[in-house]
Nucleic acid binder design. Structure first.
Lengths: 217, 217
DNA sequence: TAGTTCACTACACGAACGTGTAGCCTGAAG
DNA sequence: CTTCAGGCTACACGTTCGTGTAGTGAACTA
């Protein structure tokens, strides 16, 4: 029953503070955010933040756990299904409301949550690669891991750089309503780049990059 | 002669402060960095920072201008040559020493330099696309711009997320010595994703994403 | 040599911020 | 009705950080 009360409490002060912190942390970074700013955004006193979370660092940890909980559940579910690569992005954005922007910030500040997010994305990418072409991307191989890592970074780039993407696109790329437009652009990028790399001018780059360990003619 | 003296001064206190600031800003963010920390790293007093740059914000602007100057020169040069997409990354990393990590941080904090960097990357990508396939990517079209924006973000993701990439790869991805490994992984990503998207499972995603405006059968 | 400029330092002020403390108010338990 | 727990606030303390001020010493000029 204690657990029930805690989850119900999620609609009161504690949750309001967490949501406000998610927002302010995302906008100004952890260092740039002050507890008084968060308190004002939540409509509470700074003392209440201390009462619930102990310290600013405690509040940050709570935000980490909440964001990671919201988002990684989605990611792990995707890991267990036969979901496609671009689908990861889609479900990710849909899952998390205010925590998306928080994680975007966390990705470049030093946060355990961000590392876990990145690692999960890379794991998902590695699984995708080995399923896609087990011969070329054997599980555990360095090349497979490298490719999975960069693939994860590329997927996450729309999150980490959403400010710039939004500025150029004129819409908020984190809004689920615009996810299709983003996915379409990503598909185009892969298509165009592949065309370039398998063509005249780009072929040398492709050969040089993948040559040393490429086994197929 | 005043100009000569200024450029020569670049090897003395002013430059030492700037270099230290580049480093500390990159490590801890602008808010997380203190002028006393930067002063200590540069081996000077905090007063000297004020003397040369007026304020912490002035120092940050100077870092912006220096980093952007170092890096955008390279990018613009690439824009004027018939350089390939992955080559942009290569020359970018080689060009800038300590400013690379600074720009990585700046990409997610609000900095004019970062916006300029991103826009340049996107402009380079747009040029690449229209050259690559003028019919599919006409200059100025929304699709072209969207694709260019996402392409720029993908290229820059290795910069913005270098911490995570480095953690998984075991090496510093910003070290020019390891750029080939990064480029190889990027080539693989494009190759694998294209294979997926033009194949059975991925084909529906590709068709759905690019269908509405795609003209070719 | 006297004067001026300028890189540079030492010291201190004032504000902001994280944190600590004391206490109020409500609601449930006895 | 009393008691106690806990959500919640008001207020104050100590520190840190950006900034301001005064001053020193070396190099250059006349």
């Amino acid at each position: 029953m204690d657990i029930d009360r805690l989850t119900n409490e999620d609609l009161t002060g504690r949750a309001r503070i967490r949501d406000a912190a998610l927002k302010v942390f995302a906008e100004r970074g952890v260092k740039g955010a002050t507890v008084q700013l968060i308190a004002a955004a939540a409509g509470v006193s700074t003392g209440l933040i201390r009462h619930h979370f102990g310290s600013k660092e405690g509040l940050r940890r709570a935000c980490d756990e909440y964001a990671i909980g919201t988002l990684l559940d989605q990611a792990r579910r995707a890991l267990e299904k036969d979901t496609a690569a671009p689908g990861f992005l889609d479900s990710m954005y849909r899952a998390s409301g205010s925590s998306t922007r928080y994680l975007a910030r966390a990705l470049v500040e030093d946060s355990p949550a961000a590392s876990e997010l990145f690692d999960t994305g890379a794991a998902l990418a590695e699984r995708f690669l080995t399923e896609q072409d087990p011969h070329r991307y054997p599980a555990g191989a360095t090349t497979t891991q490298d490719t999975a890592t960069v693939m994860g970074a590329m997927q996450l780039s729309t999150l980490a750089l959403h400010t710039h993407i939004g500025r150029r696109m004129g819409v908020d790329p984190l809004d689920p309503a615009h996810t299709p437009r983003l996915v379409a652009a990503m598909v185009e990028v892969h298509s165009a780049t592949h065309a370039f790399l398998s063509q005249g001018r780009g072929r040398p780059i492709s050969d040089e990059a993948t040559g040393p360990w490429q086994e197929e003619p």
